[in-house]
Amino acid sequence: MLRVKNLSFQYGKREILKGINLELEKGQLLSVVGPNGVGKTTLLKCVLHILQPTEGDVTVEGKDTARISSRERAKHLAYVPQAYPFKFPMSVFDTVLLGRIPHINWNPDPNDIRKVLAVLETMGLESVSLHDFDQLSGGQKQKVILARALVQETDYLLLDEPTNNLDLKHQLEVMELLRLKARENRIGIMVAIHDLNLACQFSDMVVMMKGGEVLCSGEPCKVMTCENIRFIYGVEVRSVTTNGNRYFVPAKAL
């Protein structure tokens, strides 16, 4: 289990995160929702130790992640960032192979190559595997970075806005893939996400944040209510239920 205990983060004097507590089981998909600037990305970065939390700790299976080497940590936690600042041309295959870095010493063995290939296959990317990363569409790029995180073979995977800039089809594909990977490979997945409908439809757990704190967390149908959404976003919403899924329709900003 990935456990975040009383985690706080300050940027200068500004408190971004205040005493965050949350738990993520393997095989679970957890969505973190909240308005812009609420600290979702900061939370992910603190869990990954890209940023050092000012207080609190993160444990994986009881191990304090601040006390293990970054290579060791990379075997437990993988990350899909929001932007990918590639400045040099690199093939899709080589980009995904980067995910094996925590496991290889200098030369990737045939096993590493096979694993990269298997992930590329499941994501339908093998036909472009030797193309330059920069030649791909936004949706394909997102999938390549996701593939990189998957070949890292970690127990937990953290994604920052994985559906941003994707069209409807790719949004659904990515979310379905995440849910599938969580179930099949028993990975705990944590997603910072804006789209409430996707969050509600695909998550096992939802954490709602406001002002750098966790407002409430639990199963989507219990915590994602019109009242809560109005409270954290300041937007009047109506919910509609079709095919057993709840959807939110914004009515007006308050």
Binding site: S70, R71, P81, F86, T95, L98, G99, I101, P102
Partner: peptide, 16 residues
């Protein structure tokens, strides 16, 4: 190679 993907990605790939 990892640095090509950006500092943040490199860090989460276990690179100091």
């Amino acid at each position: 190679n990892a640095l090509m993907a950006g500092d943040e990605s490199a860090k989460t790939l276990g690179v100091n």
